[in-house]
Computed example of a mutant assay.
Amino acid sequence: MKMWLVAAFAAVVGFGGIVPAQAELIRDENPYILLEKLANETLERIEQDRELIDQDINHIRLVIREEMMPYVDYVYAAKRVLGRNLSETTEEQRQEFYTVFRDYLITTYAGAFTQYDEEKHIIEFGNAERFEKGSRMVVVNTRLVEQGRPPIRLDFKMRFDTNDNVWKAYDLVVEGVSLLNSKQAEISSVIRSSGIDGTIALLREKAQETVQTRDLPEGAE
Rank of each mutant, 00 (worst) to 15 (best):
G111K: 02
E92Y: 04
M158R: 10
E129F: 15
I200K: 05
V100S: 03
I187D: 02
M68G: 01
E124R: 11
E124N: 11
E209I: 04
A110E: 08
L5D: 06
D197R: 09
D73W: 07
Q115H: 08
E186F: 14
F15P: 09
V12N: 04
L35F: 13
D161T: 06
F156V: 09
M69V: 00
M137W: 11
E88P: 04
A128M: 06
F97I: 01
Q55T: 03
L52W: 04
I187M: 11
E66N: 15
F156D: 07
A201C: 10
K120G: 09
F131I: 03
N58E: 12
A185I: 06
E209M: 13
P217Q: 07
T99K: 13
V174L: 15
V177D: 07
V140W: 12
K206A: 07
T42G: 14
P31Q: 06
G17Q: 00
R159N: 08
R45T: 05
A78I: 01
V140S: 06
L62E: 03
K120T: 01
R149E: 09
L38Q: 04
T199E: 13
I152F: 14
T213Y: 13
S188W: 07
S182D: 05
Y32F: 12
E146T: 03
S188L: 13
T89L: 12
D164S: 10
A201P: 07
W4N: 05
N30H: 00
E175Y: 14
R204F: 10
N141D: 10
E221H: 03
Q55S: 10
F97P: 00
K2A: 11
E29W: 13
E36T: 05
L43S: 08
A185C: 08
F15S: 10
I187E: 05
M137Y: 09
W167I: 03
G83S: 08
Y32N: 08
F156E: 09
E209L: 14
G195N: 04
E92T: 08
D161Y: 02
S135C: 13
A11Y: 00
E47C: 15
I191L: 08
V63Y: 07
S188P: 02
L38H: 04
I64H: 01
E96I: 08
V190Q: 09
K133A: 05
E221G: 12
Q22K: 14
E175M: 12
K206Q: 07
N181Q: 08
D164F: 10
V100D: 00
I122Q: 10
F113L: 14
S189A: 11
I106H: 03
G16R: 05
V63G: 02
Y170C: 15
E175S: 14
L203T: 02
R143Q: 15
K2M: 09
E132V: 12
E47P: 02
A77N: 03
E186L: 12
I106K: 04
I60S: 04
K168Y: 01
A110F: 00
T114L: 15
G16Y: 00
L38C: 06
F9L: 11
K168G: 15
L82V: 01
W167F: 11
A207K: 03
G176H: 11
V140L: 10
Q48P: 00
